[in-house]
Design a protein around this nucleic acid. Sequence first.
DNA 1: CCCCAAGCTGTGATTTCTCTGAGAAACCCA
DNA 2: TGGGTTTCTCAGAGAAATCACAGCTTGGGG
Lengths: 246, 246
Amino acid sequence: MTTTSPQGRTELLRPDGSPVRVLVVDDELSITELLSMALRYEGWQIRSAGDGHGALRTAREFRPDAVVLDMMLPDMDGLSVLGRLRRDLPDVPVLFLTAKDAVEDRIAGLTAGGDDYVTKPFSLEEVVARLRGLIRRTGAADRRSDSVLVVGDLTLDEDSHEVTRGGDGIHLTATEFELLRFLMRNPRRVLSKAQILDRVWSYDFGGQANVVELYISYLRRKIDAGREPMIHTRRGAGYLIKPAAS
Amino acid sequence: MTTTSPQGRTELLRPDGSPVRVLVVDDELSITELLSMALRYEGWQIRSAGDGHGALRTAREFRPDAVVLDMMLPDMDGLSVLGRLRRDLPDVPVLFLTAKDAVEDRIAGLTAGGDDYVTKPFSLEEVVARLRGLIRRTGAADRRSDSVLVVGDLTLDEDSHEVTRGGDGIHLTATEFELLRFLMRNPRRVLSKAQILDRVWSYDFGGQANVVELYISYLRRKIDAGREPMIHTRRGAGYLIKPAAS
DNA sequence: CCCCAAGCTGTGATTTCTCTGAGAAACCCA
DNA sequence: TGGGTTTCTCAGAGAAATCACAGCTTGGGG
């Protein structure tokens, strides 16, 4: 089931209308804090654990609809946690967090079962999107909701990563895609550069805030080029996207 | 829940009808005083603290619906306060106060969970508006109320920053927008130039008082131009806004 | 009816914010 | 390993917003 809030945000809900439950497992407190905060903001119910045993204990009692699991835990191997988790909750989808240089193939094997993974350092948009995808696909959320965002004649498919405007396909880089997704998930709302940075760039990004301006500029070239503009600047406040007609 | 006071002011209330509670944390007494006064005027219940430990103690007992938190506290790091605060009150939204030049580095991740921040020196309108936004969005106030102010055929959307009169879109600068918001939040009430200056301009504004006249003039050109005027001067007293028909 | 204080607005200086080109570095895939 | 792609920094140009100042208008008390 999905429902749309007054702000235009779409929320995932479970079949019975209660909020989706997500368990976050990572040994770094700053990471669990960050994720808990962001995921809670999606309207989900969050519990967190700092090690494998805690995770298993919490999972049994909390019965989450999805788990975010760091592969690198102090007390046990990520794989063992996964195995034991599956014993209690056979169908729960898992989003793995891994270091960038971790063995890709082992992960690839794991994700064959419908799970997914992101590498650290991640951006919140990425984690939220993948988690939404997992929950959507495994049917923890009632009706399989749509993976296509639409604003005016602009469409963005979160599954295939396809973007079109007025029917024409548009190629975007990864960062451009995430930025556009964030804008389109919040249509007609002014988003500050800080908000965008916090959401679209990875949590350890230490650079200049004007990358946002730069990428807005790239996006404009690709989606607004020659057409009625959809991306607007609110000087001193931020940016917003809205249908061209209005 | 929202209710409309006899003066025409719209107030945020909690689901049970009791006033919203806000905790203000800053080590400068002048700031907590200023904010407490302004926020109390919104009809909210305010407590304040001058350091991290005091903040945590008060938060536990007062259970605020929102927190205004200076990042620069004498006894502890703003982030530690945040972390511990979140342990007791996982869902409470936080409005951070930061110095203008510190924005870039330590804000990273702060707005990610739906939190927000303003830079010092701020204007009271800004703080109040952001707080209202936070409370509205995180649902501490009952039904998610909407973000549009309406006076006569004039509308102002706090989310999209859109302003229309009689259906026509009107572009306002940041300062014009804040001034109009203040007027529209107090329709049919005379606001003195001093009040306006105190609310709309930052607390350290040292300029000439006639900026208010200047900006009223700008606003009139944009929203009253050619139409029945809605902004009226009460010579020697101040200004007020009201629907054209009356 | 006159005068003055209060209010209004044109001009322009200054500051601030945004956009974008150029290029360096990192990255990815073959 | 090498070339194309992507990300990001830097810096300059340009646009927009803010504000001081000053002269003009207006309203209303005397």
